[in-house]
């Protein structure tokens, strides 16, 4: 354990991983609360195509990653409410965007195959152990900045997420907040892709947040809990991947996250079943009263 903490690549992974996990946990809670998991799914497809387009153009993949995810996130926010798209259209568009990513991949490998053949796998599944000191510091810095912005708008955003109509009536700029929030989610998707990869980031956004949602009904308790669960999964995942070298960190982190979610959902179901009995008898009582109304 002590030798692990003295290794520089573990330092870098923990530095970047903690900031990214905290960001995706906090942002993920609002994503889940606002019913925007599909947007996360869309962004994961876009992240892959964007990163490979940048690689094909000979740029740093992170430029394509952030440019594509933030653009599409803002686009989703602008279209929301104006255009109604059913899930068949969304699904077909997402498949096509991934297909474009495959096109850029083929272009990249045929025209720019200068040795870095693992770039595709890195974009798909991340490589938190492969971050350079500069990458890790940059990722942690961006994540910290986004966390601060998110916490600054947390109060009005929560109000707007829970009851948009009343929030709008109280003068909260609901549309602007939604736009800003999805831009943050876009940037979060770009950050999370560097740690766990473009394909896994939906799970990274949704699972800790959904677990926190099941464990407490109070939003101000659930928000930090979602962040804490995501960070715990990151630490535990990195430790597991270090102790068992066969397991890639992306797999261990996702496994811990999925386990947290499964346990939380199970706890919630058991608790609901225990609470169900008294409430059910009460409803039957009220129903009998309704069936025989007093004149």
């Amino acid at each position: 354990m002590l030798t692990m903490l003295s290794l520089p690549f573990i330092h870098r992974a923990l530095l970047a991983g903690t900031a990214i996990a905290l960001l995706s946990g906090l942002a993920g809670y609002f994503v889940v609360l606002r019913g925007q998991v599909f947007a996360g799914d869309m962004l994961s497809h876009v992240a892959y195509a964007g990163a490979l387009a940048a690689l094909a153009a000979g740029l740093d993949p992170r430029i394509g990653l952030f440019a594509s995810t933030i653009t599409v996130a803002v686009g989703i926010a602008l279209l929301a409410g104006k255009a109604t798209a059913d899930d068949v259209i969304i699904g077909n568009a997402m498949a096509w965007i991934l297909g474009l990513g495959v096109f850029f991949l083929a272009f990249y490998t045929t025209h720019r195959a200068t040795g870095n053949s693992t770039a595709n796998v890195t974009v798909l599944f991340g490589s938190i152990f492969g971050l350079s000191a500069h990458d890790a510091a940059l990722a942690a810095g961006i994540a910290t900045g986004l966390i601060i912005v998110l916490l600054l708008i947390a109060r009005p955003l929560l109000f707007a997420s829970l009851d948009p109509a009343i929030a709008a009536a109280r003068g909260v700029p609901v549309r602007l907040l939604g736009l800003l929030f999805l831009a943050i989610v876009g940037a979060t998707a770009g950050e999370a892709s560097q740690a766990v990869g473009a394909l896994i980031l939906t799970g990274q956004l949704a699972a800790p947040a959904a677990a926190a949602y099941h464990l407490t009904t109070r939003p101000w308790a659930a928000l930090p809990l979602a962040g804490a669960l995501a960070v715990a999964a990151m630490w535990l995942g990195i430790t597991l991947a270090y102790t068992i070298p066969v397991l890639p960190p992306t797999f261990t982190i996702m496994t811990v996250t999925a386990t947290e979610y499964a346990l939380a959902a199970l706890t919630a179901r058991l608790r609901r079943r225990r609470q169900d009995r008294p409430t059910r008898s009460r409803t039957t009582a009220s129903r009998t009263q309704q069936t025989y109304p007093t004149p």
């Binding site: 889940v32 609360l33 606002r34 019913g35 925007q36 998991v37 599909f38 996360g40 799914d41 599944f125 997420s161 829970l162 394909l199 896994i200 980031l201 939906t202 799970g203 990274q204 956004l205 949704a206 699972a207 947040a209 959904a210 949602y213 009904t217 939003p219 992306t250 797999f251 996702m254 496994t255 996250t257 999925a258 979610y261 959902a265």
Partner: peptide
């Protein structure tokens, strides 16, 4: 609370876990 949907959260988690 809000727009929470168990279905989409579960599907997102299961897909990500299967890919991992």
């Amino acid at each position: 609370l809000g727009g929470f949907s168990e279905e989409s959260a579960a599907i997102g988690t299961v897909q990500a876990f299967a890919l991992a």
